[in-house]
Simulated scan of single mutants.
Amino acid sequence: MNQFKAIILAGILINVLPACSKNENVSEPQVYHLEVPEHFPPPAADTENPVTSGGVALGRELFFDTRLSANNNISCASCHLQSKAFSDGVALTSAGASGTSLLRHTPALFNLAWADHGFFWDGGSSNLESQAFGPLTAHDEMGQDLIQLVTELNAVPMYVQSFKTVFNEEIKPQNIVKALAQFEKTLISGSSKYDQYKLRKPGANLSSLELKGMELVRTKCQGCHAGELFTDYSYHNNGIDIDFSNTDHEGIYQGRYRISYDLSDLGSFKTPSLRNLLLTAPYMHDGRFATLQNVIDNYSENIRHSPTLDPLLPKTGMKLTKEEKEAIIAFLATLTDYTFVGNPLLSKH
Rank of each mutant, 00 (worst) to 15 (best):
Asn2Asp: 11
Gln3Tyr: 13
Leu13Asn: 14
Cys20Leu: 14
Asn23Ile: 10
Val26Tyr: 10
Ser27Val: 09
Tyr32Asp: 02
Tyr32Ala: 02
Leu34Ile: 07
Pro37Asn: 05
Pro37Trp: 05
Glu38His: 10
Phe40Ala: 08
Thr52Ile: 02
Ala57Trp: 04
Leu58Thr: 02
Glu61Trp: 13
Leu62Cys: 04
Asp65Asn: 10
Thr66Tyr: 06
Asn72Asp: 11
Asn73Leu: 14
Ile74Trp: 10
Ile74Glu: 00
Ser75Val: 06
Cys76Gln: 04
Ser78Gln: 13
Cys79Ala: 09
Ser87Cys: 03
Asp88Arg: 09
Asp88His: 05
Leu92Pro: 05
Ser94Tyr: 09
Ser94Lys: 07
Ala97Glu: 12
Leu102Val: 03
Leu103Trp: 05
His105Leu: 14
Pro107Tyr: 03
Ala108Trp: 02
Phe110Glu: 03
Asn111Phe: 08
Trp114Lys: 06
Phe119Asp: 00
Asp122Pro: 02
Asp122Arg: 01
Gly124Ser: 12
Phe133Thr: 01
Glu141Asn: 08
Met142Asp: 11
Met142Gly: 07
Gln144Thr: 10
Leu146Trp: 05
Val150His: 00
Val150Met: 10
Leu153Pro: 01
Asn154Thr: 05
Ala155Tyr: 00
Ala155Leu: 07
Thr165Tyr: 11
Thr165Phe: 12
Asn168Arg: 06
Glu169Met: 14
Ile171Tyr: 05
Lys172Arg: 14
Pro173Glu: 01
Pro173Asp: 04
Pro173Cys: 06
Val177Glu: 02
Lys185Trp: 07
Lys185Glu: 08
Leu187Lys: 03
Tyr194Met: 11
Asp195Phe: 13
Gln196Gly: 00
Lys198Asp: 13
Leu199Ile: 05
Arg200Asp: 11
Arg200Cys: 07
Arg200Ile: 02
Ala204Cys: 10
Asn205Asp: 15
Ser207Glu: 07
Lys220His: 06
Cys221Glu: 02
His225Glu: 08
Gly227Asp: 07
Glu228Ala: 13
Leu229Asn: 09
Tyr235Phe: 13
Tyr235Ala: 07
Asn237Leu: 04
Ile240Asn: 15
Phe244Glu: 00
Tyr253Ala: 13
Gln254His: 09
Ile259Lys: 12
Asn276Lys: 04
Ala281Arg: 09
Met284Asn: 14
Met284Thr: 15
Gly287Cys: 08
Leu292Phe: 06
Leu292Gln: 11
Ile296Tyr: 02
Leu309Trp: 06
Leu309Ile: 08
Asp310Lys: 06
Leu313Asn: 08
Thr316His: 06
Ala327Trp: 07
Phe331Trp: 04
Leu335Gln: 10
Thr339Val: 09
Val341Ser: 14
Pro344Gly: 02
Ser347His: 07
